[in-house]
Simulated assay, not measured.
Amino acid sequence: MSGPLNVPAAALEDWLRERYFQAETDISSSGVHNYTLGDLRALDPGLRDGELDALMFRDGPALGAERLRAAVAARVHPGPGQVVMTTHGSSEALFLALNALVRPGDEVVVPDPAYHSLSALAASVGAVLRPWPLRPENGFVPDLADLRAVLSARTRLVVVNFPHNPTGACVDPAGRTELLELVEASGATLLWDGALTDLVYDHPPLPDPSRDIGRCLSFGTLSKAYGLPGLRVGWCVLPAELAPGLVRMRDYLTLSLSPLTELLAAVAVEHADTLIAPRLAGARRGRDLLLEWARRTDGAVECPVPRGGVTAFPRFRGVTDTTELCERLLARHGVLAVPGSCFGHPDRMRIGFSCPEGDLLRGLEAISEELAGPPSRGEAG
């Protein structure tokens, strides 16, 4: 059922809402294993020497605290004419951008499958969605010919997220160049969700597209690669002339971020490599474990290789809908995974592989046990 803003229910959030707090073993997450406040305080002497105690809880600037914005700019290296705006996670940035830029009837290209915010928010403001299919028969590898086919003179925005959630698909550097050229030639504006930018395995992280094209907004967050989802801090890099429109809408929503979360976020971004590098190394090991496990199933689990991010999107042979399997995993083993129905592919499951290694192994073993011996007729769960 749609709400007052005509936003459909977010199937992924509905699935996780209660189950997330019931699970003993979490192999559902699209972000790396989380850090603690103590981990952050260890990075910055100021946080240990009274800076937190001296913090004044006043409202912050509409575009965000200068220290955090400067840290993001130093990390992202935006192009000329671009500014940084910090937000309540990248979800707020996406909401503000789509509401500021889209008018009813505008065509918006979105990947399919997609994280719900990328497609549903555009549809809620009256956009006509043009799906860019990432095809399972091709391992979800992005095909730019498919993108070219859905672009038109009426395309207002092209929304992408590479690395991709839930599949882990990614364009390579040459593919990024071709993608930017296609969007720029179309006259559309690019919305680049870079939540997983730093989590890649086959090439260096893709540069922020604002370095190469002007009609571009890019988004980042501490929730995925930084292991700090509870801070609820993200950002948007956008052309300076568009910033007043986003701020105007924000005046009716959140006004600004908390100075406490912006201080902690600034420390995190200033020490980004220290936080990301060990989690990326752990995710690489987790990816290897997951792919090896899938290979040992003799085709029962078909798993496209994730080129980025920390989730895989395997298909389960002979299972038309993994929802019941995911329910059994939680009820019988305390293991949380996400059924593919949350992304329009019910025969698949989203599995996160950046959790602690022991959790991943327990989760995969539980899946193997359920695939080998499903409960008999009438068994609970």
Rank of each mutant, 00 (worst) to 15 (best):
S2G: 13
V7L: 15
A10K: 15
W15I: 01
H33C: 07
N34K: 04
N34T: 07
Y35M: 00
T36R: 15
P45T: 06
D49C: 11
G60D: 09
A65M: 00
R67M: 01
R67T: 08
A70H: 06
V76D: 04
P78C: 03
G79F: 08
V83I: 02
S91E: 14
S91P: 02
L96R: 02
R103Y: 07
G105W: 01
V108M: 06
S119M: 11
A122H: 00
A122M: 06
A122N: 08
V125F: 06
V128Q: 03
V128N: 01
N138M: 11
S152Y: 13
T155Y: 09
T167G: 09
G168V: 02
A174Y: 01
R176G: 03
E181R: 14
G187S: 12
G187V: 02
W192P: 02
L196T: 09
L199I: 15
D202M: 01
H203L: 05
P204C: 05
P205I: 06
L206S: 14
P209R: 15
P209N: 05
G220K: 08
S223K: 09
Y226Q: 09
G227C: 01
P229K: 07
G230E: 04
V237A: 11
L242G: 01
A243I: 12
G245T: 09
D251S: 13
S256P: 13
L257T: 00
A272M: 15
P278K: 03
R285W: 10
G286D: 05
E292V: 10
T297F: 15
D298I: 07
A300E: 02
E302A: 05
P304M: 01
T311N: 01
V319S: 11
T322K: 04
E327S: 05
A331P: 09
H333S: 10
L336P: 04
A337L: 12
A337V: 04
C342I: 00
F343N: 02
F343L: 11
C355F: 03
L371C: 15
G373D: 14
P374Q: 11
A380S: 07
